[in-house]
Nucleic acid binder design. Structure first.
Length: 257
DNA sequence: ATGGTGGCCCGGCCA
C-alpha cells in the first residue's frame, strides 16, 4: 500500500501536476494539504476519472485538506472534534484499505512572539488528544501532512539560519515528539539517516537549486505499519518544472498484516 | 538589497 502526502499550495493551481503525479506514482492513498478550496469547488470528478474516491475539508481561501484513495474511503471525520478549536479546516481522517489515515496541516506559527505560535503548539497537543480519543496505537494508522516543524537540526539546510525562528524551536519539536510518543514512527527518517533530505523549499532566492530546504512533511505511522514499510521517498522531481508547489510529495510503501 | 516568489484575487494577507 502506497501512502503519500503533498502540500499542493492551491489545488486549483496544481491540479495538472497532481494528476500527472498520480499517473506515475500511483499512490493508493494521497493526503493533500493547502487545497485552498471550498468543498463545493473540490474537483472530485478529476480524481474519480483516475479511479479515486475523495473526501475534502475546506472553506475557501486558506488551508483545506483532503484524502484521495483508490482502496476505499469510509468513516470520514473532519476537524479536531470540538467546536471551539475547529477553525481553519486543517484535519481530515478516513479509513482507507484497513488503515486509519489522517491528513493534517499544522498551523505555521509565523513567529515565536506571534499569537499564532502558542496556537500552533496547542493545535499539536490537541491532535494528540484526538488520537487518544478516537484511535489506539496498536491499530494501522498514519498521520500524514505538513507539520511545519523540522524534527531535528539535520532536517534544515543550516541550523544557524534558524536561530530564533519557528519550525525548529524546542517547544515545537517537543510538541511533535509528544504527538509521536503516542505511538508513531517517522517512517521516512527511520529509513534514511542522511542529512539534508528536504520536502519544502522556499520559492524565493533559488532555494530549491541551492538545496536550501526543510523536511517538514512527514508520514508518522503506528508500529504495525512502520515495521512493514519497504520503501520511502521524497519525490524531488515533482518540485521541478512548470508551476510546482513549494513542497514535494512524500510517500511510503507499507502493508497491513 | 529590510527584499525576494507565489497563491489568493486586486489590496494585502499568508506562507
Amino acid at each position: 500500500m502506497r501512502i503519500a502526502t503533498w502540500n499542493v499550495n492551491s489545488l486549483a493551481a496544481r491540479l495538472g501536476r497532481v494528476e500527472e503525479w498520480i499517473g506515475y506514482a500511483r499512490p493508493d492513498v494521497l493526503c493533500l494539504q493547502e487545497t485552498k478550496q471550498t468543498d463545493a469547488a473540490f474537483p472530485h470528478g478529476a480524481f474519480a476519472a483516475l479511479g479515486y474516491e475523495t473526501a475534502h475539508h475546506g472553506d475557501g481561501r486558506w488551508n483545506g485538506v483532503a484524502i484521495v484513495s483508490r482502496v476505499g474511503l469510509e468513516g470520514v471525520a473532519t476537524g479536531l472534534g470540538s467546536s471551539d478549536d475547529d477553525e481553519g479546516t486543517r484535519l481530515i481522517a478516513a479509513d482507507c484499505g484497513g488503515v486509519r489515515v489522517l491528513s493534517a496541516y499544522v498551523p505555521n506559527g509565523r513567529a515565536l512572539d506571534d499569537d499564532h505560535y502558542p496556537a500552533k503548539l496547542a493545535w499539536l497537543a490537541r491532535l494528540r488528544q484526538v488520537l487518544d480519543e478516537t484511535s489506539a496505537p496498536d491499530q494501522p494508522l498514519a498521520v500524514c501532512g505538513d507539520f511545519n516543524v523540522a524534527p531535528e537540526d539535520r532536517d534544515v539546510w543550516d541550523p544557524s539560519e534558524f536561530v530564533g525562528m519557528t519550525h525548529v524551536s524546542q517547544p515545537e519539536r517537543d510538541a511533535l515528539a509528544a504527538l509521536a510518543s503516542w505511538g508513531l514512527v517517522d517512517t521516512f527518517r527511520s529509513r534514511y539517516p542522511d542529512d539534508k533530505l528536504f520536502s519544502w523549499w522556499d520559492y524565493r532566492g533559488g532555494s530549491f537549486h541551492r538545496h536550501r530546504g526543510m523536511r517538514i512533511d512527514l508520514i508518522l505511522c503506528t508500529e504495525v505499519l512502520a515495521r512493514n514499510t519497504t520503501f520511502a521517498l521524497i519525490d524531488r522531481q515533482a518540485r521541478k518544472g512548470e508551476k510546482p508547489s513549494d513542497h514535494a510529495p512524500v510517500f511510503i510503501d507499507t502493508s497491513v498484516d
